[in-house]
Amino acid sequence: MNHEKLTVDRWGDVIVSPGETKDVEVRFSESYSGMNLNIPIQIRRGIEPGPTIFITAAVHGDEINGTGAIRRLITEESIQLKKGNLILVPVVNVLGFERHSRYLPDRRDLNRSFPGSAKGSQTSRMARFVFEQIVSRSDFGIDLHTASVRKTNFPNVRADLSNPDLVKLTHAFGCPLTINDAGPEGSLRRSACDAGCPTFILEAGEVWKVESSVTEQSVRGLKNVFISLGMIDGEVEVPPYRTIIESTRWVRSDTAGFLQFHVAPGDFVSTGSPIVTTSSLLGQVRQVIESTEDGIILGMTTLPMTAPGEPVCHIGLINKGQSRMEKVVDQLPNEALQLRLRNDLSTSFNVTEVADFVEDPPDDVPEPSEDEIL
């Protein structure tokens, strides 16, 4: 896309001139009663020409950590746009947001429906509206997400790194973890990339929450991108380390029981190191689940209990340099964002050393007796 051939100056009857910031509400559909349904958007234009970037959140209506980050951007007076344009959309899926739901009322997933159809389902029509009104005006996009329900994610960027523009943008964003992944069919980022608008996502935190450290990480990364493109003044904040993750693994439980974690989001693990212990309601140890790989904890369940086959932990595999990164993290001060994220994201569950929880962990998974109650 060439920003010189696109305009962000007219939104319905609203004209946004260079140097102006205006709030608009753009109609995308109507309710059963015939009332207009609108998406609130803030448009910021710099004095000088430059790239247009859309920042979206809550494409899944319950993932509102990104909403908090965009609202922080909107209220930060320090962000003075010199060049280019920002399209800030705190909530894309307003119908899901109103219902505290991931989905639209027709129970379809908006982030599997792009680029959509003007004659399709309710969700498909909304996807088409977003594509025509937001993506088509933009040179780049950043879409903010969280883990799905009952899970949390340590902040990680996901992008198709075969695209040189996305290599530059994600590097500038400054998240320590970048997963090389084009995204599923029908996702906003994949469809936008296919349409010539390089787009990546940030996955961080939990649904139904605006977590302060996640907001800080998100805003820091967004400002880094703006600075790197010359859109605002400032110095890019560099993360303590960077690594690209090419593949991930889910670790699943073989037994039912209550969970006692021994790691937190963002922790490094080695093959065979204990991740979580399962135990019965009466405290009998059932299984010590160990890491199947070397890597870093990307995500975890926030449920306190599990059943056989359920995922308990998501590991990002690190090909090289893990010991060096571990040393870097060990030397960080307690107030470092990396450590605050780790502590904040682990507040939904208990984290203890395995030795503090079970003195002699079983070697094999015990078979439950007929009268054992979990």
Rank of each mutant, 00 (worst) to 15 (best):
E216P: 04
Q217A: 15
V225W: 03
W208H: 15
A204S: 14
W208L: 14
E235V: 15
W208P: 03
G196C: 07
V207D: 10
T215I: 13
P240N: 08
P240C: 06
R220W: 07
P239I: 02
S218A: 15
L202Q: 05
I227F: 06
K223A: 10
L222W: 07
E237Y: 12
G234T: 11
K223W: 03
A195G: 05
I227P: 03
E206K: 13
L229M: 13
R220I: 15
R220E: 10
C197V: 09
E235I: 13
L222I: 14
V210I: 09
V225D: 03
V225S: 07
P198W: 04
M231E: 02
Q217L: 09
N224P: 08
C197W: 09
A204R: 01
M231W: 04
G230M: 12
G205C: 10
G205Q: 00
M231H: 01
A195P: 02
C197Q: 14
N224H: 12
C197T: 14
I232C: 02
W208C: 11
I227H: 13
E211D: 14
L222K: 00
G230K: 13
G205S: 08
W208G: 12
T215F: 00
E211N: 09
K223P: 06
A204M: 09
F226H: 05
L229H: 07
V225Q: 06
